[in-house]
Design a protein around this nucleic acid. Structure first.
Lengths: 234, 234
DNA sequence: CACGTATTTACACTAAGTGCAACTTTGCAC
DNA sequence: GTGCAAAGTTGCACTTAGTGTAAATACGTG
């Protein structure tokens, strides 16, 4: 308690660690930008961050992990929103609201860049998957906490996994359509994809629909309205 | 086309390759069994398979990949079942049927062993995730093929991802409850979990329910029936 | 059997990741 | 400020992963 700060004081040491970590992550992204995937080493990143190779490994277990920290930040943001939702809100509504926070320019920007730069790399994709998976377990924890200790474990995991899958689906479709375009229109489209995906989840995927259903107004606030007729055969 | 065989003839060379691949995968699993995760190298596996280290890398890009081939085989089996379903069947019904094939002793056995042996390894888990993810894209392809080229891409991806998530959830809950127990009762429980998970998905997760709802008879054959009342607020 | 092609292997090399001990910085008490 | 202990950084040595290349071996076919 040297200086009674307004909010949590990370104590110089913590601050420095955070700064170093960020410097490394930034350097990694910079390398990715300038040299392209696979054309630089951990040593390059360390040098770019003004730190020794050994220190790099004190912060990240691998080159890929350093890049995946972007995704982690992205997802942590959504997670935080989720935790802030009132606990009597239907879970899918909370999920929708949390995902909505991702469609903010500042938040998607690094993610979109990472998307466009990695696209086709094996090891990178693995680390991305790990980040999404970690987010899933966090949602499970948050939801368990919200719903009490007696919730059906299967319900919890299937739901959390599906929510994440919907988020991933929306992101990937959006990116495929708009690339790294962050214009308001593009972001509106991302938001709509997120809404639609959660809508599909809430209605049990009863409406295959045709190609792009266009910006349908969010059908109902309590997203679980099932589609009118379950005409999903060919 | 040297010999017009009844079905695809793998031609000695192909056979050998397959055999080598299998020998390597087997050796990897054997090492995992005998030494535990992290206590053996690629060289050990190669030696165990009677093959050079370089040859190992001709077949698998990493040690983890060799182990994940178990998971791949497991999921490929389900995928195959999925592709065999009539194309006018509701997708969730097909998914349930395909997942059901996983609850066969011969099929789960290696998977269950892998589960029990890896449990807590970082790199291993990454490769597992990759396998599930690969399966997701395969489902997307299969579903796209089934539903025609005009399906909403978001629908496709969100659905495929959710199906996989439900399968994963069922597997993990089952394993946590039963460990590597492959008795008929245990397998019946796995089947029920898979049915329940797809049921939840089909009904838009409208029923948090309490702990273990017990073996509910599969509610309806056309799995997409939404729950009676969408009462999912608190 | 002989020949062309596919596969395996040995070898060499770069880079990942880790343990350890020396060194530097920070937080804190006096 | 000075000193000290704890936390963090670095260099070094070492094992293992993963890849390129060219020689050797096995296979399929005439």
């Amino acid at each position: 308690m040297t200086t009674s700060d307004t909010t949590a004081l990370p104590s110089r040491r913590e601050q420095n660690k955070l700064a170093t970590r960020q410097a490394i992550a930034d350097a990694a992204l910079a390398m990715l930008r300038s040299r392209g995937v696979g054309n630089f080493t951990v040593e390059d990143i360390a040098e770019g961050a003004g730190v020794s190779r050994r220190t790099f490994f004190n912060y990240f277990p691998s080159l890929e992990a350093a890049l995946a920290s972007v995704t982690e930040g992205f997802l942590d943001h959504a997670l935080e929103q989720f935790r802030l939702r009132p606990s009597d809100e239907p879970i899918l509504d909370s999920a929708r609201a949390a995902l909505m926070a991702l469609a903010d320019p500042m938040t998607v920007s690094p993610m979109a860049e990472l998307f466009s730069l990695t696209h086709d790399n094996r090891a990178l994709v693995r680390s991305e998957l790990e980040a999404w998976d970690h987010c899933t377990t966090q949602i499970i924890e948050a939801a368990r906490h919200r719903l009490g200790p007696d919730v059906n474990e299967l319900y919890l995991r299937a739901l959390a996994g599906s929510i994440i899958s919907c988020g991933k689906a929306a992101m990937s479709v959006w990116f495929e359509q708009h690339g790294p375009d962050l214009s308001p229109e593009s972001l509106a489209s991302l938001r709509q994809h997120l809404i639609d995906a959660i809508g599909l989840l809430g209605s049990g995927f009863t409406a295959p629909a045709a190609h792009s259903p266009g910006p349908v107004q969010n059908p109902a606030s309590h997203g679980t309205q099932p589609g009118a007729d379950p005409q999903h055969s060919a």
